[in-house]
Design a protein around this nucleic acid. Sequence first.
RNA 1: GGAUGGUUACCCAAGUGGCCAACGGGGUCUGACUGUAAAUCAGAUGGCAGAAGCCUUCGGAGGUUCGAAUCCUUCACCAUCCA
Length: 372
Amino acid sequence: MFEFTLKAQDGSARAGEFLTPHGVLSTPVFAPVGTQATVKSLTPSQLMDLDAQLVLANTYHLFLRPGDELIAEMGGLHQFMQWPHPMLTDSGGFQVFSLSKIRKIDDDGVSFKSHIDGAMKRLEPETSIRIQENLGADIIMAFDECADPTQEAYAREAMQRTHAWALRCIEAKTRPDQALFGIVQGGIFPHLREESAHFISSLNLPGNAIGGLSVGERKSEMYRTIELVNAILPSDKPRYLMGVGTPEDLIEGVLRGVDIFDCVLPTRLARHASAMTLDGRLNLLNAAFSRDPQPIDVNCSCYTCSHFSRAYLRHLLNAKEMLAATLLSIHNLHTLLQLARELRLAILQGRLQQYASSALERLAGKPNAGRV
RNA sequence: GGAUGGUUACCCAAGUGGCCAACGGGGUCUGACUGUAAAUCAGAUGGCAGAAGCCUUCGGAGGUUCGAAUCCUUCACCAUCCA
């Protein structure tokens, strides 16, 4: 169980296979995010049509509602949401960052004021593991503290707590059919990241993650940090870059040895009218598309692009029809899933540098390009 | 034919002498979004500049006033009621 096999390497990049109780992950892999036990606007069958391999769900949100015990009673997360393939649960560590206004941290854990009803809720390493065991994902995450990456004193403190909590997570874990991944923190500070990468590596967990990135730091700092951390993390274990999500970041991450990614970006952008392409983003609400008969991307083979015009999608968005979110989510996820597959193929065929540099060149200077 | 109420920017609508280029919605336009408090959020929306500023507006015309979307006269149109 949880065997990681490297099939090929190209520079620092790797193509691998990670065996889990619910199937094999072919890496590099991108995981759509389904925070509340659903990838917003999509059915599991639509996700399967997209060949999504891994879906992420969230400890904090499911703990609050409907409750991890209820999900356990209903047969676990896979059964509950009818996703038969591998799943990963985040520990709630990201909510320490994203809900920073309504929480209080101490060395033992974090107290949250529920964003749903205001009730005080407590998350500690042991609680997070207990909840994740009730949920039953294949990969579970250590409870960490995701901090503002640019303040050194705080980054150090958060890193130290993350390390202490990782040990407690290991201690608390009981289920053998779940792989616990540790999380490297340390902000944008090389010495902290090095220290953290060494510590997390020493725990000898079945996989390791890089957290605390793409939360406001510069791109160059993020790439440098990935590089530095991956030079230390063991190469025979999967490396998971948490919360990363643009096409260029996927490419840059893979080039630096990342195997697993997840991000809300494709599905969130979809609901906000943005289409992701390998030539930049399109805001489909722009008036310029009102009579545009073309698909989002003529080179895209997704269901949305093979059936619908930009004009139709713009109409759906404009009319606030639910189908807009679905069709754009299908397209955006397809873009990232397909990119991950192409990166894997390029690694297997030993032509990653060439593939990556031409793709990055296409994207250069237009991370959010409005028009194509 | 008479009475009353009404006519404000793309639409609805507030404003009843100076703080009004004019509240607030809607619509429209533009932007943002990276381990989801996000089908969300932000800005713009008379014209020209687009910092300051200048010009043209509140059904039409005329008037009162230092000053009018706001007061008066008149015309047009709309609504309701009475003949």
